[in-house]
Amino acid sequence: MLKWYKEPAKNSDVVISSRIRLARNLRKYPFSIKLSDEQAVLMVNEVKESAKTIEQQTERKYNSSNVNTLAEIDKTAMVERHIISPLLTAKEQSTGLILSEDEKISIMINEEDHLRIQSVTGGMNIYEAFRMANKVDDITSGIFEYAFHEKYGYLTSCPTNVGTGLRASYMVFLPALTAAGRVGKLIEELGKYGIALRGTYGEATKSVGSLYSYDEVEDKVHRSYGILRYARQLTSGDAMTLLAQLKLGLDLELIKPKQEFNVHELMMDIQPGNLQCHQDKNIGSIQRDKIRADYIREKLPEII
């Protein structure tokens, strides 16, 4: 089965991915901040066990693991791929993860809530993401007794999540709004509708900045391609900026790749953690910048 960033999807130039998160807690354990270390171990093991049942009842294969015992580098790589949250990696208590083989469904165990069920699809397809998460939730609710309140609904650590425990999000690529300096205004406007907008991967698209004419954009896109093609050292920040510009060029069809090329996959692969996992060793930052440039040169398609 294809990973989410490899499947063809609707509006995937602007909407990179759609995500659903469900926050759930088990009735028999205290919530995160009152959970003892011993209880955390018990709870994580108990939830990890449910992976088998979930596998039997869905069309996917799942793996479960402890997160707190993983190497730092593997944790970082998973955060960069949006599989787990920084909060989960920062915890010293026992933490766990159930992950589907195609990385579309994950359950973080002992994050801010006992279970954080997450699903992701490529492009704009929030309904499919919801269907997947809801199905897993149906299965787990048959295994565990959830903390559920007659009046308030699903109970969560933080009162902002109580009720459905659901959060829906799109990851969007907005180079033109960023360039026009309109993102601040957009954040304000969206806030009125209960929608929050924030940056991922830092401010990668920022320096597409202040381009006004088509010619300027075309020039900038080709310059970026040139640097990516010939540079011998690239920091992750530089590489992200250049790849964002390249993506803009591809979306606007200013440049066309001769070979198949997945810019989003490359963006994840060149993050520090993932790059080192590819190399199977820890490497210093200068060495890493060289390896990153090599890696990009290898993956970068020829253009028409």
Binding site: R27, P30, F31, K34, E112, Y152, L155, T156, P159, V162
Partner: peptide
């Protein structure tokens, strides 16, 4: 801390919470 300790907290603090939960949600 802005976080509840357990499921029962919602009942324990119900009186003072009701209004605020309505405000947030």
């Amino acid at each position: 801390v802005g976080r509840f300790g357990c499921d029962h907290c919602y009942d324990s603090f119900d009186k003072v919470l009701e209004q605020s939960i309505r405000n947030i949600q």
